[in-house]
Design a protein around this nucleic acid. Structure first.
Lengths: 190, 190, 190, 190
DNA sequence: CATGAATGAGAATTCATTCAT
DNA sequence: TATGAATGAATTCTCATTCAT
């Protein structure tokens, strides 16, 4: 029903399957079951769906975090977070980068920060609480810590899934090393 | 003289200046001072320069690291590394991401790992030495630590330079937080 | 009005005038007064107009046969048929062969038979009637006879018009020999 | 050893396999195992091999005719001729037409007649002999008869092998109808 | 005679975008 | 709002041909 959302859904599906370059507006509108011109009623150009896609994906992660990370010890929470980021990257592999790149070709580069903001804030809050609870060092700057953490998790996940067929044991080791890294960097349990 | 290298140099120059989309093969060969068809003697398509560019850029970072990170304490070395990554990202801003994206559209995705390998190894060696010197925790896995570190540094730098005009003070704070993060994560000085 | 037909007409005109190789899609669309991309709404590639052209040409011959071959003795009809084939080949000289060749590079080779079918059938009917009228041998297989006749007429016409400047007397002799050949092969007047 | 011949052989092989358009000079020289420029020592352009190929193919038919059509009754000889033409067309399917088309794009169209001449003459001689032997009508013009016969045989063969998968029984029927057609057209056995 | 790296003109094709309905 | 036929600018890639060695 909501054509705007149908465009976004189809765009994601096709970009994931065939890449941005290979996907034409025609592909998208066909998949969405709407007319060719209708696309331009909702988005002003091919690239201008990108922010919407980015938003959708960040919200996706947020939703998972909110539902899966709950009330447990900070350590457990970090473990879950790493899982969420790994799973998400696996599912959407190239798309994040693709979207990001598409973004840089728009004039809306600045909005990237805005779109990520809720995610940064959510993690920041999590850190703040752990600090209040005395689980991590009181001198931690949650602002930078949240950003560095997210960057580290995303990079790690990307590295892992670049391997054509990463073995599960390798993934598990990497994940566990990453959890240690994060906790240690926050002086957890000292 | 070496036409292959001239193509790579011109491609980097133009991709940086105008983006990949806006740069045509014709632009590149003109800049390189060679014939249109000559491009295809060395690269099979527009995108297939990407791995060569990636290689060039990784080597670039490596060269800087080798020349700038020397003989000092691990802490100083980490500070210098962060500087190198920040400077490099600033200089080549979009190119890194562009190259990465271009890569995924080639069939050579697997080579990414190979191209990064020397960088990973170099950092790994640095960590190993710090461990031998007793500067960081003896339990550190240099394999994962190097990869996570590099990911964190790249992500941080990208986040910083996304702001249209990041203030120097913000950059300095982020950089310093990052150094702390890395050192703490390795139990430096405990 | 009908853009498809305008494309076909222009293609025939230009192919005849300058050959297939020398004719570009741009030439065709300019001549047809339509946009460059419009061509591809109706035909999927440069070569894929060929079947349409072939159809047009076969229909052309059919139309001439239907209007010029009427109600007379079989002998007169054969003479007229030969004339039609000769005239037609003269007018469209290379085009027939070009079309044929273009065809073999499409995947629609099979349609050749379909396109020729009405022509075969028309001649077949003519033979059947002559047989009923007792003008030719009752044992004649009109199926094969029609096909062999058409082949002979086309080949003869092509041979004749290969000479840069065939003398009219030569053409007349060839034509007359051909009529004799056909009639005799059918035991006409025995 | 003879590079000229190696070029012709490779050209035939590749033209048959992939068509003229799809075959590049580079393909040919690679297949022939010679240098790129060497081609132009023997032929002045891409198309200028065509006459050589045509010559080769006509000679091929002639050689078969000479070895297979020997001393028997005219009827047997015609049967054998038809077989040779059918076999040859099956083997070289499109090539004849392709070569012919390639020819028309050269300025040497006139030579086609010259190249076919020996074939025409050979058949003409065969007819003349049959006439001397009283096997066919004394009024037969061997000049036109030979040309019409060859045309009919080639056309028939082409028609037959256009069917994707002609059944053997159909081919046999067509062939036999063709032999009858030819013999009757010459008043054989009257 | 032989080579093959280099050339560059040229064309087919694609596809984002528009606009009359 | 919605459509989809029409557009045409723009670009990659091909390949016959050349020429210095």
């Amino acid at each position: 029903m909501d054509k705007r959302q149908r465009i976004i859904d189809s765009a994601i599906k096709l970009y994931l399957r065939q890449g941005i370059e290979k996907t034409t507006i025609t592909d998208i509108v066909k998949d969405a079951g709407i007319g060719q011109g209708t696309y331009y009623l909702y988005f002003s150009s091919k690239l201008s769906v990108m922010p919407a896609i980015a938003e959708y994906m960040v919200n996706n992660v947020l939703r998972r975090l909110e539902s899966e990370v709950r009330d447990r010890s900070f350590k457990r929470n970090v473990e879950t977070m790493v899982s969420v980021f790994f799973d998400n990257t696996e599912e959407y592999k190239e798309l994040t980068k693709l979207v990001y790149t598409g973004f840089t070709q728009t004039e809306e580069v600045g909005r990237w920060e805005t779109i990520y903001a809720p995610l940064y804030e959510w993690v920041q809050t999590l850190i703040d609480r752990a600090r209040s609870d005395g689980e991590i060092s009181p001198r931690t700057s949650s602002f930078f810590a949240s950003r560095i953490m997210i960057g580290a998790m995303e990079s790690a996940a990307e590295q892992v899934y670049l391997f054509d067929d990463p073995e599960q044991s390798f993934i598990d080791e990497y994940r566990s090393a990453l959890v240690d890294h994060i906790l240690t960097s926050l002086n957890y349990g000292k």
